[in-house]
């Protein structure tokens, strides 16, 4: 549209406009450079690798779509992807509900509001590795919980050796560490809803619950879309937390897709195959995101 309007204008204005348009590009230049060097180029390289047999060291040999064919018959890959999906199905709603719930509580006029917001936000500033270690010190064999159990004369429990408890620990740690970030987004979303709607609803005799379901939730649709999309992508990419907390165990119970790809690439030295897996994961996440976007009409009301 902008090019059309420029073309319609006489020459001098056109020149002036062009000059002015340089600024925005300069604005994005630093980020664009970093994005190109660290995201775009590696992605293209990854796509190239995916059609080759490559160990990262010796010359690549082109093998066409053999890597992709191998993935489609690799039961472990799809099992791991299924496990990751299950994890996402549990973690995404949990983070959504907890973040929204806490955001609603913390937009009320309460004492020490800033303090509580900070407490929930702080964990998001800690790296996943530290979060993992921290929860390991709580649930681990030598962790605080077992220390307390022993102190009161009970037998210690090997939480992280039990698939169910290990998964639970990972979920708790993930929710704890990400909750604050999405709470802040919800707080912004909630504050953007005009107060008048609630006053009108109150005058009409609507209950708080009704107001929530008929005013808050619909008006939070764009925020909801953003949060669900981000948490879903995050859940599919989860690895550093499990790496530090469970190492993917017990017996692969918490080994999700990124760890599986990592192990294929770096432990088994099959970088070509691992690249193909990354591309498959990339396509799946893209389809999912586009679908979500379409279904919610881009989050517009």
């Amino acid at each position: 549209m902008s090019t059309e309007s420029i073309a319609a204008h006489p020459q001098p204005v056109n020149k002036r406009k062009r000059k002015l348009q340089l600024a925005p590009y300069l604005f994005v230049l630093p980020n664009l450079l970093i994005f190109t060097v660290f995201i775009v180029i590696p992605t293209i390289l990854g796509a190239v690798y995916s059609f080759h047999e490559y160990d990262g060291l010796n010359p690549m040999t082109f093998i066409g779509i053999e890597n992709y064919a191998e993935i489609f018959t690799d039961v472990k890959f799809w099992q791991t992807l299924g496990k990751t999906a299950t994890y996402a199905i549990i973690v995404v709603p949990l983070i959504y509900i907890c973040a929204l719930g806490i955001a609603i509580l913390l937009v009320q006029q309460i004492v020490l509001k800033g303090f509580f917001r900070a407490i929930f936000y702080w964990p998001t500033m800690i790296s996943f590795i530290i979060v993992g270690l921290t929860w390991r010190w709580i649930f681990g064999e030598l962790g605080i919980i077992n220390g307390v159990l022993e102190a009161v004369g009970k037998d210690s429990v090997s939480f992280l050796s039990d698939p169910f408890f290990a998964k639970l620990t990972v979920i708790i740690a993930a929710v704890w560490s990400r909750l604050g970030f999405f709470m802040v987004i919800f707080v912004a979303g909630l504050l953007a809803i005009p107060k008048d709607y609630y006053e009108a609803a109150h005058l009409d005799g609507a209950s708080k619950l009704r107001a929530f379901f008929h005013i808050t939730l619909p008006l939070l649709k764009p925020t909801t879309l953003l949060v669900v999309m981000l948490t879903t992508i995050e859940a599919f990419k989860a690895y550093p937390l499990m790496f530090a907390l469970t190492g993917g165990g017990p017996n692969k119970a918490t080994t999700y897709i990124v760890q599986y790809i990592y192990e294929t690439g770096f432990a088994k030295q099959e970088l070509g195959l691992a690249s193909a897996m990354s591309i498959v994961l990339f396509v799946i996440i893209t389809i999912f995101t586009v679908l979500q976007f379409k279904l919610t009409k881009g989050g517009e009301n």
Binding site: G140, E141, L142, S158, F159, L160, S161, D162, A166, T246, G247, G248, G249, P250, N251
Partner: peptide
């Protein structure tokens, strides 16, 4: 042998040091 090493990923050095 405690399962916490081969299933729980606990560091055996830390366990020995206790």
């Amino acid at each position: 042998i405690p399962t916490s090493v081969w299933l729980g990923g606990e560091n055996p050095n830390n366990l020995f040091r206790t």
